[in-house]
Design a protein around this nucleic acid. Structure first.
Lengths: 140, 140
DNA sequence: TCTTGACCTGTGTGTTACTCACAGGTTTAT
DNA sequence: ATAAACCTGTGAGTAACACACAGGTCAAGA
């Protein structure tokens, strides 16, 4: 299988596969005469593994470490559990931050519905943004 | 005010300020004799504006455009409303994706509690990851 | 046989918003 | 005088690709 064949088979873009090869996650054989990469069934299932791990929140370096450990005949499972618990905490924090930002944005949009446009005076740049106090009402 | 003074005053890292200068968001005067940057009160309130806009979900290029428009004496408000509605939609999508990933991760962790570790056989890499089907129960 | 068009290649750069490392100049306190 | 603590600009690194580019390769039609 060539890059584009594998890409179609796994529903990803060819550039994604090239990226994984560059990062050392996939190791295709190379046709010496034309430089083309060729992927055997083992590489294909490796790609499927990568995609599954990614959807579970593992980073590419994480996955690379897991693959390496497995290739050495060691059980990657303890590592997998450990990494996952770290990523889980990270994701939870990022999620909360993003939720917070989203709520703030929505509040601002709502408040701005009823406010007129301003012209800059030198004192301020945009009263919509400057005048926005998180919470929207009488605090701060 | 020097970089580090401004950093302390606004509770950000000096490198962040240098970054904003590099991006053209802040324009300090420069002491010709030693190359140090100096920030006047106008620049300080510009920084406060930048930080507030950032917390509202605007990107640095967004903010740069808003500042430029304001500096030309035009009202940035229509632009601000427009950009915000775009960023709001983007953030909502990212938020949902992240929530989805988080739920998947938590499900996996829970399922893995009761599963033993594996040893690589060549057939598979890690059965925890390969065996996980999103949904967790009887589907797929 | 030649040419055309579609595909392939590696490499390099751009994305976001910083963060850190580096080598060296400046200031301040002792 | 000197040492500590500050400052500077520049360049690279972060995640996971996406895209552009110049050029090589291949199958098919004329």
């Amino acid at each position: 299988m060539k890059v584009s064949d594998l890409a179609k088979a796994c529903n990803v873009k060819p550039d994604t596969i090239r990226h994984y090869v560059r990062c050392g996650l996939l190791s295709p054989t190379k046709d010496q005469s034309n430089g083309y990469k060729y992927f055997n069934p083992t590489e294909q299932s490796k790609l499927r593994f990568i995609l599954k791990a990614k959807s579970l929140g593992f980073s590419l370096p994480d996955i690379k470490a897991i693959l390496a450990q497995s290739a050495e005949g060691q059980s990657p499972c303890p590592n997998v559990r450990e990494i996952m618990s770290v990523r889980l905490r990270e994701t939870e924090i990022k999620l909360k931050e993003m939720q917070q930002t989203f709520d703030t944005m929505r509040n601002a949009m709502e408040l701005w519905q009823s406010q007129p446009d301003c012209t800059p005076t030198g004192d301020h740049i945009c009263h919509l943004i400057e005048g926005f106090t998180d919470g929207g009402c009488c605090n701060e």
